[in-house]
Simulated assay, not measured.
Amino acid sequence: MATATDSRRTWGGAQGSIMTLIILILTLSLSPLPTQAQLKTDFYKNICPNVESLVRSAVTQKFQQTFVTVPATLRLFFHDCFVRGCDASVLLAGPTGKVEKDHPDDISLAGDGFDTVVKAKAAVDKDSRCTNKVSCADILALATRDVVSLAGGPFYQVELGRRDGRISTIASVQHSLPQPEFNLDKLNTMFSSHGLSQTDMIALSGAHTLGFSHCGKFSKRIYNFSPKNKIDPTLNLAYALQLRQMCPVKVDPRIAINMDPTTPQIFDNAYYKNLQQGKGLFTSDQILFTDPRSRNTVNLFASNANAFNQAFISAITKLGRVGVKTGNAGEIRRDCSFIN
């Protein structure tokens, strides 16, 4: 037969268990649902069933007009997601000098990326089942997948269900994007703030196998690196001298140079092979090989294209979840350049 003391112990234990359960329930109820659970690859199945083919057709047509479509769209997606989350805020127009795309880090975004989204949006809205039902943010995400594929990269499933943001400010871009002079610690800190690992960062950096940069972004590495070295010693000397020919001191610093000197129009793993040879255009590129903490991943991606492709798919999928608006948040813009 249980004594009074036994009863108090039992009740005390029960109280402890109940309190633990209550705390657990409260913790779960207050924790935000994971974003990836809100995005679905078949989000538009019953809303706009042809959305992927409509976007792909428009992007393919734009790609056939100019290859710049590829790096411009891919870079646009990255810049959008890193600033206010993947909400198409980078597309918003506004008073000069007031919105994201007016910031120096965004002002060099090629117009063909914006035009790709505009044309894809028009193609989607032309279908009566889809009119004003697909967000600009989702169209940009789909267009990004399509340009990667068109350039020879992997085709992957895109999670959908994002809504468009209503806010775009030039101030929000400040300190939000990785810079050409970043070292590994700064890169890791910035990417980890968005839930992206070092491997994700290295995989996403592989997008520099496409596109171009302006001479002003790396001129210090080839002319005035330090009092001791005019040329960055981590830079391949022959490559550095070639860059000097393409970027003379007194020539417009906005001259464009391919990020990948070997296969600039193919999405492949040549970027990592270039790093092994000291041909990373930015300090933030070359550091991935010179820093022993990241070198093994570079070597893996350089030797195994499939490993790179799979890592890129994982990383860009995670990037596409950053700061998204779903449910009743945001809106579905009728015009990607303006809030409704």
Rank of each mutant, 00 (worst) to 15 (best):
L237H: 05
G111A: 07
D285F: 09
R333T: 07
F338D: 02
D260I: 04
V148F: 08
A329I: 01
G280H: 02
A256N: 05
F155M: 12
D138S: 13
S53N: 14
V249W: 08
R56H: 15
R221M: 06
Q61W: 08
R295M: 00
Q245M: 02
C336M: 10
A207P: 03
D232V: 07
C136P: 00
Q38V: 07
K217W: 03
Y44N: 11
S31K: 03
R162T: 02
D112L: 12
A171H: 12
S7D: 08
Q157G: 01
T283D: 01
T35H: 04
L241A: 02
M190W: 00
N50E: 15
F182L: 10
C86A: 15
D80H: 01
P34V: 09
S168F: 11
M201K: 04
T35N: 09
D232C: 06
P34T: 04
D102G: 11
D125M: 04
P49R: 14
D335R: 08
S205W: 07
D260S: 06
R334A: 02
N309P: 03
I18M: 09
K126P: 11
F77H: 14
G113W: 03
T326C: 12
R244W: 09
L30T: 05
S172H: 09
I222S: 06
S205C: 07
T35S: 07
T234V: 04
I23E: 13
Y239A: 04
N296R: 00
C336K: 02
T144E: 09
C336R: 00
V134Y: 04
S197T: 15
T169C: 04
S337L: 10
T283F: 00
D252N: 15
R163S: 10
F218G: 03
P71L: 00
P178F: 13
K220C: 00
D106S: 11
N269M: 07
V322N: 01
D6C: 12
A37H: 08
R295E: 09
L30R: 03
L54H: 04
L24S: 06
L210Q: 01
V83L: 04
Q61M: 10
G165F: 10
I107L: 06
H175N: 11
D80G: 09
H208S: 05
P71S: 00
K119L: 15
D125V: 07
L275M: 06
V147S: 10
C81F: 03
V99Q: 07
F114K: 11
S226F: 12
V59S: 14
A4G: 02
A151V: 04
N50T: 12
S128V: 14
D285K: 06
G13H: 03
S337C: 07
S219R: 03
D80I: 05
A151N: 05
D335C: 02
A120D: 11
G323V: 12
F63M: 06
D87F: 09
Q245W: 00
S193I: 00
G153N: 09
H214P: 01
G195H: 11
A143Y: 07
N132H: 15
A58G: 11
I25Y: 07
M259T: 01
N340R: 10
E159F: 12
A238Y: 00
G206C: 06
G330F: 02
